[in-house]
């Protein structure tokens, strides 16, 4: 099990109703971690449309969870 902080932004924050969620997860990778969050909050975003970041840097979906890390699922950006 790994304890991670999930960060939600923009429409993901509104869909989950929170900007931070601390979870204990046995997910082997970040893709599974997102699947768990998507099921828990009935998120409409397919993982293919999102990116994932760990501790403030972009990561890969097949990366393993690191205990104590901060994970953010990044919906398509709209700055500029």
């Amino acid at each position: 099990m790994a304890k991670v902080r999930l960060l939600y932004f923009a429409s993901l924050r509104e869909a989950t109703g929170q900007d931070v969620e601390v979870v204990d997860s046995a997910a082997p990778d970040l893709a599974t971690l997102y699947a768990e969050a998507a099921a828990r909050h009935a998120l409409a975003w397919p993982r293919e449309r999102l990116r994932v970041a760990v501790d403030g840097a972009f990561a890969q979906w097949d990366d393993a969870l690191r205990d104590g890390s901060e994970v953010a699922f990044i919906p398509p950006v709209s700055g500029g």
Binding site: A10, S11, A53, I74, P75, P76, V77, S78, G79, G80
Partner: peptide, 26 residues
């Protein structure tokens, strides 16, 4: 590159009272 890569999101407020996060298609 900033528009396509930087983690910033725009939340628009419309004249009809609607609000929306913009998440453009690639």
């Amino acid at each position: 590159e900033v528009k396509s890569r930087v983690a910033i999101w725009k939340h628009e407020r419309y004249a009809d009272g609607d609000l929306q996060w913009l998440h453009p298609e690639p």
